[in-house]
Design a protein around this nucleic acid. Structure first.
Length: 478
RNA sequence: GGUGGGUUGGCGGAGAGGUUACGCACCGGAUUGCAAAUCCGUGAAGACCGGUUCGAUUCCGGUACCCACCUCCA
């Protein structure tokens, strides 16, 4: 069996991965707050942990891996949208409008992540479905002396948990010294965080022993991971920005609620995303959603390829140039598969061992892609692209089930019959060979190139292939 | 202020204490009406200063610069 090694944020070392139960490997990843379209940064953890999910399934068997990713559907931004809609005259109660908003956002999220080739997790629990579990966990924390109720709020007492700060390498005292946040007067300690907060009539709320209210952000992951994966599970993932305070708080809650448990054994954090070297932000004007990117014509596979070309623990810089290169690569692979594996049904379980090896080494996706490139070369030399196809399937660039399509979807989508033009060019060329006047041939050729078509002329004939920047509109009149 | 990470050839980006990473670009060759695509080949690196070592880009220490988190943004 392939030995997987993973970098554990908790110990800050790369460790051999040993699951609690090889027949039931369990992973929890913090999912999105469903208030709006997913932006490109949201896609990174999705693709990183999708790749890990695929690797785990490959190593332990598809039926022996469970992957839980939550939807946070309790959030003030969601509430704000719902309130705004209500004020604009929308029908229904506030609860209806909130539900509507989260439903449509989840639909978008699924559509967008599907387009990137991300598999759906085994379970996608919503916070609102686990309010009871959260209330129970909060009550347990109060009973054990780790939480206290004050003016309608329930707060976690960080001083009751000596390990607090261990994941992020901070001490409570240091954090207080550098705190930038205004401290609520009712807190016993400035670092205490909210488990439950009161809701007034204008906000969604649930009945609880502490009055009508709603849960704090951190408790949902503790409650849902416990309900679905148990007190101890193998991997907990998310963006590095969640390391503190979110994950620190999760650990405090879960370990205090279930003394003696390990909670998550391995903590994995992906680094952030940059766009053209800068942090993606609305103010810099380099903020965009996955959907916008797809609508601009970037195929999901290309986004995936670019994302995987940087190791997950390094900042990932999204650039147009990388997308361009990724497109060319994928086109080349696709053509090789078309030539040397037409009709073949890819089987990810037969993927290249070298690629598996690269992934098993703390998800070295960049090396995996370099190896994929070598597989491509080999496929060309051997005239057999089956392993290339199998490996592409494992990495999520080809559907698991379907056979290789004649061309990748993004070329097909732009569907344009180039045969007529190819024949025309061939005829012109044949004539020019006689007359030695190549002016008309060159004119047509440049027009085709300008439209993003690759022109291949050899003794065997003329071949036209739509390239990365193919634009059918520019072919009008040729 | 606290915590963590980074600095590799023109660009992107890895592994390994000593043997070519790789890709893209460039250059040379084959091929082509000219190209493109393809194939073959060459060149090019390890922020700075010390230390350990027979030998470091790879280990250790320091300096500089950059970045992220500490704000319910992945």
């Amino acid at each position: 069996m392939t030995g997987i090694r993973l970098y554990n944020t908790r110990t800050r070392t790369k460790e051999d991965f040993v699951p609690f139960d090889a027949m039931d490997v369990r992973m929890y990843v913090c999912g999105p707050t469903v208030y709006d379209r997913a932006h490109l940064g949201n896609a990174r953890p999705v693709l990183v942990f999708d790749t890990l999910f695929r690797l785990l399934r490959h190593v332990y068997g598809a039926d022996h891996v469970r992957y839980v990713r939550n939807f946070t559907d309790v959030d003030d931004k969601i509430n704000a949208t719902a309130v705004a809609r209500k004020e604009a005259g929308a029908e229904g109660t506030l609860e209806d409008l909130i539900h509507q908003r989260t439903e449509e956002t989840i639909g978008w999220y699924h559509a967008d992540m599907d387009a990137l080739g991300a598999m759906r997790p085994t379970a996608e629990p919503r916070a609102t479905e686990y309010i009871g579990a959260m209330v129970a966990m909060i009550q347990g924390l109060i009973d054990k002396g780790h939480a206290y109720e004050v003016s309608g709020h329930v707060l976690f007492d960080v001083r009751s948990y000596p390990e607090y700060g261990r994941l992020s390498g901070r001490s409570v005292d240091d954090m207080i010294a550098g705190a930038r946040v205004e401290v609520a007067p009712y807190k016993r300690d400035p670092m205490d965080f909210v488990l439950w907060k009161p809701s007034d009539a204008s906000l969604p709320g649930w009945d609880s022993p502490w009055g009508r209210g709603r849960p704090g952000w951190h408790i949902e992951c503790s409650a849902m991971s416990f309900e679905l994966l148990g007190t101890s599970f193998d991997i907990h993932g998310g963006g590095i920005d969640l390391q503190f305070p979110h994950h620190e708080n999760e650990i405090a809650q879960s370990c205090c609620a279930h003394p003696g448990s390990d909670f998550a054994r391995v903590w994995m954090h992906n680094e952030m995303l940059l766009v053209e070297g800068k942090k993606m932000s609305k103010s810099l004007g380099n903020f965009f959603t996955v959907r916008e990117l797809l609508e601009q014509g970037y195929p999901g596979e290309v986004v995936r390829f670019v994302m995987l070309s940087t190791h997950y623990r390094k900042p990932m810089d999204w650039t147009a140039e990388k997308a361009e290169q990724a497109t060319l690569k994928l086109l080349a692979y696709s053509r090789t598969c078309e030539r040397f594996a037409a009709g073949y049904i890819p089987d990810s379980s037969r993927a290249s061992a070298h690629v598996i090896e690269a992934l098993a080494d703390d998800l070295n996706t960049h090396l995996a892609l370099a190896t994929l490139d070598a597989e491509h070369k080999k496929a060309e030399q051997m005239g057999d692209a089956r392993t290339l196809a199998d490996t592409m399937a494992l990495l999520g660039f080809i559907n698991f089930e379907g056979p290789i399509s004649p061309e990748h979807e993004w070329i097909e989508k732009k569907g344009f019959d180039l045969n007529a033009l190819a024949e025309k060019l061939a005829a012109l060329r044949a004539a020019a060979m006689e007359t030695k006047n190549f002016a008309s041939v060159d004119a047509l050729k440049s027009a085709l190139i300008a439209a993003g078509v690759e022109v291949r002329m050899s003794k065997a004939g003329v071949e036209l292939v739509p390239g990365a920047g193919f634009d059918a509109a520019k072919l009008d009149g040729l």
